[in-house]
Design a protein around this nucleic acid. Sequence first.
DNA 1: TTGAAAGCGCTAACAG
DNA 2: CTGTTAGCGCTTTCAA
Lengths: 341, 341
Amino acid sequence: MAAEMAKRATIHDVARLAGVSIKTVSRVYKGEPNVRDVIRERVKEAGAQLRYRPNAAARNLVERRSNLIGLFFENPSAAYVTELQMGALERLRETRYRLLIFPVERRADILGALVETAHASGLDGIIVTPPMSDDPAILKELMESGMPFARVAGDLAVYPNSSVTIDDMAAAEELLHYLLSLGHRKIGFITGDLSHRSAQLRLAAYHKVLAGTGIEANPDYVAEGGFSFASGLVAGERLLTLKDRPTAIFASNDDMAAATLQVAFNHGIRVPDDLTVVGFDDSAIASMVAPQITTVRQPVFEMTRDAADMLLQQIESGKTEPSRQIGYKLIIRQSSGPLRV
Amino acid sequence: MAAEMAKRATIHDVARLAGVSIKTVSRVYKGEPNVRDVIRERVKEAGAQLRYRPNAAARNLVERRSNLIGLFFENPSAAYVTELQMGALERLRETRYRLLIFPVERRADILGALVETAHASGLDGIIVTPPMSDDPAILKELMESGMPFARVAGDLAVYPNSSVTIDDMAAAEELLHYLLSLGHRKIGFITGDLSHRSAQLRLAAYHKVLAGTGIEANPDYVAEGGFSFASGLVAGERLLTLKDRPTAIFASNDDMAAATLQVAFNHGIRVPDDLTVVGFDDSAIASMVAPQITTVRQPVFEMTRDAADMLLQQIESGKTEPSRQIGYKLIIRQSSGPLRV
DNA sequence: TTGAAAGCGCTAACAG
DNA sequence: CTGTTAGCGCTTTCAA
């Protein structure tokens, strides 16, 4: 029973009814000054009566912007994705910008299509997240397109600007040193998807710290994961069924750490008494499982919020912004404890 | 070093370079028939050379649509939100439609602003999720606006159409009967946010089933939650510190069930040996914790996918679609077991 | 199979 | 403070 879907009122209808020019109506609806209050009121009344709403497309056309920001992500962890989104939205709130989401399934598909998609949707700019934010081919495409973009955790070696980062390597090292300080020497490691730079960095930190401590590398202690919970299940199983299993496991993200906890539970291995498990990211899942997971807080929310901020600046100024780095933090919770002899 | 940001090529530039009319260029870029292959090629080449991309705003203006769908949600559970999004995106994939997300903080703020926002963003239609999909005031606003919409789990009593539902009441009852069949009689209940209809329905099912079995109602066994993990922590603590604590707890969603598991862990209460815990939704978290949670699968993904389908139909046909109902399923996992005497 | 001309609804100079 | 006049870049009759 919707009201007659009569053609929507336009600025001309409102102008006619209010007895003013369309320019004045435009001024009123854009909140511009230089309109007498009487007129302003009269226009608003006419607009309300006609149920007038400015046409977004017409406005976009002439203003040459859509106020649309695209968030591209490719990540198997729901918790991580939510943080990304909420961070971006936090910055966009109270602005005229809106957020469009673009999950990408396969990286191969997006190459060449990313800028295409962005243009087809009329985006004003895009936020690129790992691992796309590290990909030289994607970066190249982006830069050539002239489409404003900002990166979350984008590799500065690939391109030095427009990225919000943390010191991934240092963070992983700190976590490892914490494990050593607990007395652990048999430390297992679950990698992330090694096509992600962050996954490689964490693995490198693992090798570096162990080597620096003179611990002999045990290849069996490194299991390949892929950042997803399911992959953590497989990797955790591999590690925990070793004859000489590790006393501590460093999973490259919290989802996989949670998976390891589940594997341990099913084998009757108690955490942290019989096994220490640590994750990375401090995503929501880390504090939702029992025991709660010791992890490194990678402030994904803040990083994405800052990336959005950077993007808006670039859109408005037309200039590229330098990268920014923000801090991480070791968060000790219940899943880690001293080595039991 | 982006290429000179010379003004973007327009359809006129391409037409000129290809030596055809703009209408022909338009035909080529819309994939319309009735263009000789030679011409088509020539136009494409000219377009590529000029790096031409159709202007979305201009197209939207004349076609009177933006191909933008808005997803409005107000939910403290990240897992739930992700399912909503992925479901909608699943249907939109391979179509020309894109998804905009609108998290709603406070319901009060959105009333009156929802349609406003939708129009300001030029949306073609919107997907409304609980509890907004039950709210009479919001529904009224929506219907009067003429903006196409579809609802996820929207109350059919408030408005009979455009909703994808499950039989909430029956699902909750089945779960309760399962608990009874396990021998449990002291059954605790954690409510959701009671401003949500689904929360009320689940509570009603609890009272109904217990009454039907002749179990005396114990007010202490009902703790108020709010669907968030944090609220589950508080409610779980309340229930598990009772002198005569329940042997089974039914949390109104999985997040709160996970929280209850954590409280149990901290009190040294073993699940399922000493306590049975069940949730609702079968969201991702249910199978990521240890023990995995017994729950009722509310197919949020499918519901939202279908709501998106319904919405597209409505947009294209201009007609309202009847509601659809889909099935739920009891999923027994590790967190439930027979009553120990 | 192709093109000319007329808008879509709005903002933006530039006058008045 | 207000209005006139041009477009923005595209699709769409309607002819040819």
